[in-house]
């Protein structure tokens, strides 16, 4: 698996898109710091961008990479290699190279701005950690979609749909439910609802660390009580880990049964 990972990573590190992605984050980091002139504020703005963009890029890149390397995968399948190691290697290659673009692209401008001397370093690290988690989750989901769909167009369609669902539609439905059932105590429900969507979970985690939870009103207080504690933090990260594990497990499962 490590060999496949090495070569996939190497291949991607030389692809133009990795550089475009890297350059985009670099530019975003520089522009935000320049406009905000403040590390903490830049982190908040960045969060809003990352929370939506990272899943999108992870999904599209994952699907694209799978379909593009299909014939090569077939060549690898004819080698004395185990199937799960081929697909996990490729998956990790994509996810890690995307994560690296994210970390370096955002890290470099922030470090030059004086990140290490500022108090925002923990917030910023949390931002990057959730960014990496989102990359791992959505690339794995993308591989799942691609493995289940031979048809490229369908695969891309489902991938975009998945992103739309989790990044936008979920929030809408969630909000509607909250409005619809506003007469009932909803703090538990909203807590669970937030946990079930990795994008919402990441957003809440960062928001609460940024100490702007007061803006969230009563629910914010409940959230703060939960996510603000160590227990909440551990539970949240466990949920994120589960979100990575489940699609990865399905990649292994599916790849063992698939015909090429």
């Amino acid at each position: 698996m490590l060999k496949i990972l090495k070569y996939s990573f190497y291949d991607l590190m030389r692809s133009r898109w990795s550089y475009v992605y890297f350059a985009f984050y670099l530019l975003l980091g520089v522009v935000l710091l320049f406009l905000n002139n403040d590390l903490s504020k830049a982190v908040i703005t960045l969060m809003n961008v990352i929370i939506v963009l990272v899943p999108l890029i992870g999904t599209i890149f994952g699907v694209m990479y799978y379909y593009n390397s299909k014939e090569f995968t077939e060549l690898l399948l004819a080698q004395p290699l185990k199937r799960p190691s081929i697909f996990l290697g490729q998956y990790l290659g994509v996810a890690l190279s995307l994560s690296m673009s994210l970390i370096l692209g955002l890290g470099i401008p922030f470090v030059f701005y004086g990140l290490f001397k500022s108090g925002a370093i923990w917030d910023f690290s949390l931002l990057l950690i959730t960014g990496v988690f989102l990359t791992l989750i959505f690339t794995a989901l993308a591989f799942n979609i691609a493995l289940s769909n031979e048809n490229k167009i369908k695969g891309f369609g489902y991938a975009i749909l998945l992103w739309l669902l989790l990044a936008i539609i979920y929030d809408g439905v969630f909000l509607m439910t909250l409005i619809l059932f506003e007469d009932y105590p909803l703090d538990k429900l909203s807590l669970v609802g937030t946990m079930l969507n990795p994008i919402d979970l990441s957003r809440t985690l960062i928001l609460l660390k940024l100490d702007i939870s007061a803006l969230l009103g009563y629910t914010g207080a409940v959230f703060k009580q939960f996510f603000g504690t160590n227990f909440g933090l551990i539970v949240s990260f466990s949920v994120l880990v589960v979100w990575v594990m489940l699609p990865v497990w399905r990649i292994v499962f599916k790849s063992k049964k698939k015909d090429f």
Partner: peptide, 19 residues
Amino acid sequence: SEYRHKIDYLPQIANFPSN
């Protein structure tokens, strides 16, 4: 998967990582 050490395979369509 070990038995494939004994097989050389030439696939119909050759498409390799372009980079």
